[in-house]
Amino acid sequence: MNRYSVNDRNIISVGYDEMNKTLEIEFKLQAIHQYFGVSLDEFVALMKAPEIETHYFNYVYCQYYFDVD
């Protein structure tokens, strides 16, 4: 999965696998979380958000099952 670098204080990069609907977020604390069942629209909304971390906490973290890689 390709990840895209983002300008955020706690998130380094964000990636998305459209076929598997998996969102991957790399944090500065050396953790990578994979979120499952995430729509392409949600990925696009996250990437367009003025504050990625705020959008992540409000719309991804509390909505989707995740696993730590």
Rank of each mutant, 00 (worst) to 15 (best):
V44F: 01
E51C: 03
L46G: 02
M47L: 05
Y64H: 12
L40V: 00
E42G: 01
E26D: 07
I11T: 07
M47K: 05
E24Q: 14
I32P: 01
Y61L: 13
A49N: 05
Y56S: 09
N58C: 02
E51Q: 07
V6S: 04
D69R: 10
V68Y: 04
E42A: 11
F66H: 15
F36T: 07
T54Y: 00
Y4G: 00
I25V: 14
Y59L: 02
Y65L: 09
Y56M: 07
Q30S: 10
D17G: 06
A31F: 08
Y65P: 03
V6K: 04
Y56F: 15
M47H: 01
A31H: 08
V68M: 11
E51H: 08
V38H: 12
A49F: 06
A31S: 05
L46N: 03
L29P: 00
S39M: 05
T54I: 03
H33Y: 14
Y16W: 06
N20R: 14
K28I: 04
C62M: 11
F57M: 06
D67Y: 09
E51W: 03
L29Y: 06
E51N: 09
R9S: 14
S13N: 04
E51A: 02
C62H: 09
Q30P: 00
C62A: 11
D41G: 03
V14K: 04
K28H: 05
Y65K: 13
E24T: 14
Y59C: 10
M47W: 00
M1E: 05
H55G: 01
L29G: 04
E51G: 01
T22M: 14
L46C: 04
Y64F: 15
V44M: 02
V60A: 09
V68R: 13
Y56Q: 08
G15F: 02
N20P: 00
M19L: 12
E26Q: 11
Y59W: 11
I12K: 15
Q34N: 04
F36Y: 15
D67V: 11
K21G: 01
S39T: 12
F43H: 06
H55Q: 02
K48M: 14
E26S: 13
S5R: 05
N2H: 12
P50V: 07
N20G: 02
N2K: 14
N7Y: 15
C62E: 11
C62Y: 05
S39Y: 04
N2I: 14
A31L: 13
Y16P: 01
D41V: 06
H55S: 02
V38L: 07
F36Q: 12
E53K: 09
S5D: 08
P50K: 07
E18G: 03
H55V: 03
M1I: 11
E26R: 07
D69Y: 08
D17K: 10
I12P: 00
V6R: 08
E18M: 09
N58V: 02
E18S: 14
L40W: 03
Y59K: 10
F57D: 06
T54Q: 05
F43R: 01
N10K: 12
K48T: 13
G37A: 08
L23H: 11
Y64D: 01
C62N: 10
S5V: 08
